[in-house]
Simulated assay, not measured.
Amino acid sequence: MGSDSVPQGRRELKPVPVTVTGAPGALWHPSENHGARRDAARPDLIVLHHTAMDSAEAALERLCDPAPPQGLSPVSAHYLIAEDGRLWQLVDEAARAWHAGVGQWGDVVDVNSRSIGIELANPAPNPFAEPQMARLEALLPGIMARWDIPPARVIGHSDMAPGRKSDPGPKFDWRRLARQGLAVWPEGAGAGAPGDFLHDLAAIGYRMPEGGVPEILLEAFRMRFRPWGRGPLGTADRALAAQLARQVPVRRG
């Protein structure tokens, strides 16, 4: 039936498009697992994750489940990218998704209220598929422009939760993102004198978790910047940390 079927004197009701702050072209698949950003915070971090689940569809179901099995908490993210490049948006960018959990980056302790969370479907520790990386590279510039987020504040879950989280993992290509201005990577890595490793990591943004030991921070740092590193803390680790502390000190506040 067309518009001729509308009774005289009554206005036809048309669907109202949903207005969502986010990526054009993303499949809108809303999750109930979100809330308001605390203290009217704006996102100034982007946190990258991997799902560690068998499929993107399984991850999508988990991220949208308001009542998960006993022992599991409701979780969400703003975006989910499948291995084949499909992109879902689950939470409006202006809202607080539940992806980061306990952790800290620089002075930011409520990372959920200050970040956009992006999940990459990957059962881990597989390399990340080309269509998935291409979609991520297309997604990030818009988010960074909308919220004025610099490359140094695109981080991994393992960066803000060392010892507790290991994603997106040592096989994620951070250097590829950095070449496009979407993250940071130390070109000419290790140039310069080594410094105080823990002091330099704090300058970059890393924070020791409660009850943690220095080896936890070393593991997180290497996972991001020296995934080939092995053994105890060495001169190369210290020189690289000192270089990054000079180049990309964490933004305060």
Rank of each mutant, 00 (worst) to 15 (best):
M1R: 14
V6N: 08
E12K: 10
K14H: 14
K14P: 07
G25I: 01
P30Y: 07
S31D: 06
S31R: 03
S31Y: 03
N33T: 13
R37V: 14
D39N: 15
A40N: 15
R42E: 15
P43M: 01
V47M: 13
V47S: 11
L48G: 15
L48M: 14
D54Y: 04
D54H: 10
E57C: 05
E57S: 12
A59M: 05
L60C: 00
L60F: 05
C64M: 03
C64W: 00
P68C: 10
P69I: 03
Q70W: 08
S73Q: 08
P74K: 09
V75C: 07
V75Q: 09
S76V: 06
S76E: 06
H78Q: 09
I81R: 03
A82F: 12
G85V: 11
R86C: 04
R86E: 13
R86N: 04
L87V: 02
W88P: 01
Q89I: 08
L90V: 09
V91I: 08
D92F: 13
E93S: 11
A94I: 05
A97R: 02
A97W: 04
W98I: 10
A100I: 08
G103P: 03
G103A: 06
Q104N: 01
Q104G: 00
Q104E: 08
W105C: 01
D107K: 03
D107Y: 09
V109F: 00
E119I: 02
E119R: 13
P125R: 06
P125E: 05
P127D: 07
A129T: 04
E130G: 00
M133Q: 06
A134G: 02
L136M: 04
P141K: 14
P141N: 09
M144W: 00
A145V: 14
A145K: 15
A145C: 12
R146Q: 15
W147E: 01
M160Y: 12
P162T: 04
K165H: 10
K165E: 14
K165Q: 13
S166I: 04
S166P: 02
P168S: 11
P168F: 00
P168K: 08
P168G: 10
F172R: 04
D173N: 15
R175P: 02
R176E: 04
A178I: 02
Q180Y: 11
V184A: 02
E187M: 06
A193R: 10
P194R: 06
P194C: 05
P194K: 06
G195W: 07
F197V: 02
F197R: 01
F197E: 07
D200T: 00
D200Y: 11
D200L: 07
D200H: 12
A202D: 15
Y206R: 11
Y206K: 11
R207Y: 12
P209I: 11
P209A: 08
P209C: 10
P214L: 13
E215D: 15
L217V: 04
L218Q: 15
M223Q: 13
M223I: 05
R226Y: 08
P227A: 10
G229V: 04
R230L: 09
G231D: 09
G234M: 03
A236H: 13
A236N: 10
R238Y: 05
L240H: 00
Q243I: 03
Q243T: 06
L244I: 03
V248M: 03
V248Y: 13
P249V: 10
V250Q: 05
V250L: 01
R251F: 01
